[in-house]
Design a protein around this nucleic acid. Structure first.
Lengths: 119, 119
DNA sequence: CGGCATCCTTTTGGATACTG
DNA sequence: CAGTATCCAAAAGGATGCCG
């Protein structure tokens, strides 16, 4: 009678989703999709991100194989981040989600107003 | 020379993305896609969610127009949640993301192992 | 059954200072 | 420039008790 879906705590898709569905990952990957970008430039483009959050998120993205980190041994050092091949594939569903938010922004705002009136 | 993308703090897609990219929304919507589901049944299917987090997330999903809440005045009360038409459209990009996590789980785990060895 | 209110712990994140 | 380390404030989240 009822459905059968159960999201177990060890469900692999859950573990992975929790790695990518954060506030900054999609933004960072989208910026990197345009150009390989250096740390501080990335920080400027993702307005509001702190240095700490940015470096943490970049580290996680790198660890998960979505971003490549390239160090140029100039002086001072230049560190360039770029999309890995895996990161490129992730951008496909991300873009679909991004487009959904753009397409449905108004519908959501209308729903919010109606909800707030009901309360 | 550089790219031109800038994610402003007021960027509407950011504001909306932060509403849907949380730990539970995708799971809840996926369960509801199978059947309209009652609160405690939903809680059982999304293993690990607390009552507090579930009710908060459901409230937000309802406010954003993605979920409908229907109260049956039996005794005790039965509250049934279901996907709204808007929620149905959101599931499309969500499913693409879900599929990506399933398809690329192993690639990510390999990348992690390699990263951890490098450190 | 489906919550809300409260308390309390844990996590997150910002600010600052420091380093190669 | 590109971080790391530390400290502290803010927010999220679990546990519990209560209610219609």
């Amino acid at each position: 009678m009822d459905g059968t879906i159960l999201f177990h705590v060890d469900c692999p898709s859950r573990l992975l989703f929790e790695q990518i569905a954060d506030k900054w990952s999609m933004m960072i990957l989208t910026v990197l999709d345009e150009n390989p970008t250096r740390f501080n430039e990335l920080k400027r483009r993702c307005e509001g991100v702190s240095q700490k959050s940015l470096s943490q998120t970049l580290r996680r993205l790198e660890r998960n194989g979505m971003v490549d980190r390239h160090v140029r041994s100039t002086s001072p050092v230049a560190v360039e981040y770029s999309l890995s091949p895996l990161g490129v594939t992730l951008l496909v569903p991300f873009r679909a989600l991004y487009r959904w938010t753009c397409d449905n922004m108004e519908a959501v705002e209308t729903a919010r107003r109606e909800f707030d009136v009901r309360e």
